[in-house]
């Protein structure tokens, strides 16, 4: 099992992490951050195995991964 913490103020909602996650754990939030982006969230935490593929693709260094 794993867990990701997303810095929602750094996230620009580019979805590269969503595309990198082959377990479908991530989705965009419904809410906006202060810059007006819809940040990504760990919508299905039970699917996260802490593989870090999302963080490897994140261009804003917004993801911290625990396993």
């Amino acid at each position: 099992m794993g867990y990701v913490v997303i810095n929602t103020e750094l996230c620009k909602g580019c979805e590269l992490c969503i595309s990198a996650c082959n377990r479908g754990a991530l989705s965009l939030s419904e809410t906006q951050n202060r810059k007006g982006y819809q940040p990504v969230s760990l919508a299905r935490p039970e699917k996260c195995n802490g593989c870090s593929l999302c963080a490897i693709m994140c261009p804003d260094v917004a993801i911290t991964v625990y396993r």
């Binding site: 099992m1 794993g2 867990y3 103020e9 750094l10 620009k12 909602g13 580019c14 979805e15 590269l16 982006y37 802490g50 870090s52 963080a55 490897i56 261009p59 804003d60 260094v61 993801i63 911290t64 991964v65 625990y66 396993r67």
Partner: peptide, 23 residues
Amino acid sequence: EKCVFKPTEGLTEKPLHYCPGCS
């Protein structure tokens, strides 16, 4: 659980100004 991926000390805390998704 232990942290397996965290922001590097090699970068400052300044948010990047690049467009969303930029390499």
